[in-house]
Design a protein around this nucleic acid. Structure first.
Lengths: 181, 181
DNA sequence: TCCCTGCTATTACGATCGTTATATGGCAAG
DNA sequence: CTTGCCATATAACGATCGTAATAGCAGGGA
């Protein structure tokens, strides 16, 4: 889904339906054939698509342990930011910080919430398997801090914040893993 | 500056110059009199204004120590999210996740980067005063995780992530403070 | 062959965008 | 009182927005 790539750069309000369609190789006329509820539905499916991609990668790496999963999660975003020359971030965050439409349901932002929850759940399961107590809040901290750091790197045009946060999270995680009985 | 309030809800691309002007009590015609460089300048000054407000509050609370500062920082965002019924977040993050204009300088996103740096600097100074080593990365983690959590709370329409992250950060901070010689 | 269905291509709608220009008023300086 | 300037108000610019309607095309069952 090329739509996710556009949203993670320009945000949802900054992405036009025409560009979203063109970027996906589809004609404008077909957009409302496949997405009858319009832009909100298009954004929601793009968010779900991108979220599932990350979930799949994260789940795979978490099989090798929480630290490996954390490293892969961070490396994924590091590559996204660097490959785009600090122009692309996370489409899920981009949708989360925008207001839902005044009328109608907030389909896109609800999809973003579901993606966040899915990532946290994967982390929580891996943490619990390795005996980490209070895994929920730790997973929330990891997802939230990575999302925030990616945005911070874009603003600063500097990858240092992501590397710093990576080190902080890894140390925190190893501490929690090391303190199990 | 009423513009910051609109940006933190709708983002920059989602906020029209007309609404930004009207929300500030100023007429549309006067907008380009006070902000000759247009929307980018308006957004940049709104971000700086909001950033300075938070910086002032943060600096004041940090005088009572890093933990007090952290609590105030989190309480400030907690109130913002709750008072707006999960519709408002941080205007600095909202600007940070959007693409700068294709031509011309990226005034708004540069202002966002400066605000992030200012917040981190305040935290770093307070942490160093209290003997915390490696204060820079810890400050980055704090700012980034709070920003990310605020966005996550908006998407989920749930304040729990912020309370969870508050507890995690406070414990992490007290650990670092307690380990000084 | 004919029609029906699923998709594409194109055009168009009214609204609204960022921005600029012009007309209007208040008010200090002379 | 007049003059000149600054800020406001209003209107308008071309472009573009999300969305809908329409016309054209494929192909498969009768």
């Amino acid at each position: 889904m090329g739509a996710a790539d556009l949203i993670r750069r320009r945000g949802l309000a900054g992405s036009t339906v025409r560009d979203l369609a063109a970027h996906s190789g589809a004609p404008l006329g077909s957009t409302y054939h496949y997405f009858p509820r319009g832009k909100q539905q298009l954004a929601a499916e793009a968010v779900r698509y991108a979220g599932d991609l990350v979930s799949t990668a994260l789940a795979g790496e978490l099989a090798a342990g929480p630290v490996a999963g954390l490293r892969a999660f961070l490396a994924l975003w590091r590559q996204t930011v660097l490959d785009s020359d600090f122009r692309a971030g996370c489409p899920v965050l981009a949708v989360a910080v925008e207001e839902p439409p005044a009328e109608g349901e907030a389909e896109a932002i609800a999809a973003a919430a579901a993606v966040f929850a899915a990532w946290e759940r994967l982390l929580v399961e891996a943490l619990r398997e390795h005996g980490v107590a209070d895994a929920g809040p730790l997973a929330t901290l990891i997802v939230a801090s990575v999302e925030g750091t990616v945005a911070m790197c874009r603003a600063k045009r500097d990858i240092q914040p992501l590397d710093d946060v990576a080190a902080q999270l890894e140390q925190l995680l190893t501490d929690r893993l090391g303190s199990l009985g």
